[in-house]
Design a protein around this nucleic acid. Structure first.
Length: 318
DNA sequence: CGGATTTGACCCGCGC
DNA sequence: GCGCGGGTCAAATCCG
């Protein structure tokens, strides 16, 4: 299983860097920076357009380099994390063998809970059913085949069971299950009255900051954001692939991406993650960049960071 | 006021 | 048959 799908460190938002060499002077607003938040140095001195362009170009290069270094650091961190996680999984498997092969436990707890843990740790969204289970429960085959999971990291203090995936959901129940102290919320797709899709959201028993969303069924309608790409939601989707991007920028910017694959029964052959294709990756990155730049908090935080950097650099120069 | 959410009651399948 | 537990219903409540 590809563990890297859980944390994709190749998040380079500089997909289409602004053309700083163009004749027109670069305006801060072109980066989504409000006019009132322009870096103050722009007003303190009146550099020529060329000097200004050069400075910004230099800054851009520096930021790109910094971005590249951070990406490398993240990659290393993720590798270490994956190694540690694998070790933990080994230990858990060894310890769990007794329980799994012990006296037959309750009907669903074994399949749901253990799979939750395993898949959550591996960070992939797959059908939770095994061959053994399917043979045992042929009745659930159809439903199971259309079941997928998504994992969304939330703020530590956030206790809401809301997973922004772009679809419109109506909550119809909540239950505290036995094997997880966190309540499980039940949702139905309310975008289309006839849509049979249901969603269960529950916090991971291992990591309370991770929401586990279990989707059952397939939407019989296009994605809302595909019909009206208003961009009001941060949720991103690609066909039936449930994706979500949560953004929190309060001083520091924290971006959580969860790109999971839905194992649809219709395209079972195309089980290979669609995000492999470079153009799809490009599309996803563009979507994310678009969502980010539309977020006022993000642009404000970005502007503050850039102006802070520029001020800092000015201080070192003067 | 209408739609969404909450929450206790109820239903149903499974194991004993 | 009974009890347990997950899933769903629906009345009450909330909220924009």
């Amino acid at each position: 299983m590809d563990n890297s799908s859980w944390v994709d460190t190749s998040l380079d938002l500089n997909i289409n860097p602004p053309r700083v060499k163009s004749d027109a002077p670069v305006d801060a607003e072109s980066f989504g920076v409000p006019r009132k938040m322009k870096p103050t140095f722009m007003f303190q001195t009146k550099p020529s357009a060329k000097e200004e362009t050069g400075a910004i170009e230099e800054e851009l290069n520096r930021v790109s380099e910094e971005n590249r270094k951070l990406t490398e650091m993240l990659t290393v961190m993720c590798e270490n994390y994956n190694a540690l996680r694998n070790q933990l999984m080994d230990c858990m498997c060894k310890n769990g063998e007794k329980e799994l092969h012990g006296p037959s436990k309750k009907r669903k707890s074994a399949s749901s809970n253990n799979n939750d843990n395993n898949i959550a740790m591996n960070g992939n969204s797959e059908s939770s059913s095994t061959d053994e289970e399917l043979s045992k429960k042929p009745r659930e085959e159809v439903i199971k085949a259309k079941t997928s999971r998504a994992y969304v990291r939330t703020e530590a203090g956030d206790k809401s069971l809301i997973v922004k995936d772009g679809y419109q959901w109506r909550k119809y129940g909540q239950k505290v299950t036995r094997d997880n102290p966190s309540p499980r919320a039940y949702f139905k797709c309310s975008f289309a009255p006839s849509c049979p899709v249901k969603k269960k959201v529950q916090r991971s028993i291992d990591d309370q900051s991770v929401l586990v969303a279990t989707y059952e069924g397939e939407h019989n309608h296009p994605h809302p954001s595909m019909e009206a790409t208003s961009g009001s939601s941060h949720g991103l989707t690609l066909g039936s692939v449930p994706c979500s991007a949560s953004l929190a920028s309060s001083g520091k910017t924290n971006i959580t991406l969860d790109l999971t694959k839905s194992k649809s029964s219709n395209d079972a052959k195309s089980s290979k993650p669609k995000t492999d294709a470079p153009e799809v990756r490009q599309f996803l990155v563009e979507q994310m960049a678009s969502s980010l730049t539309k977020d006022p908090n993000f642009t404000a935080a970005l502007a503050a960071a850039i102006s802070g950097r520029m001020l800092q650099q000015n201080h070192t120069k003067w």
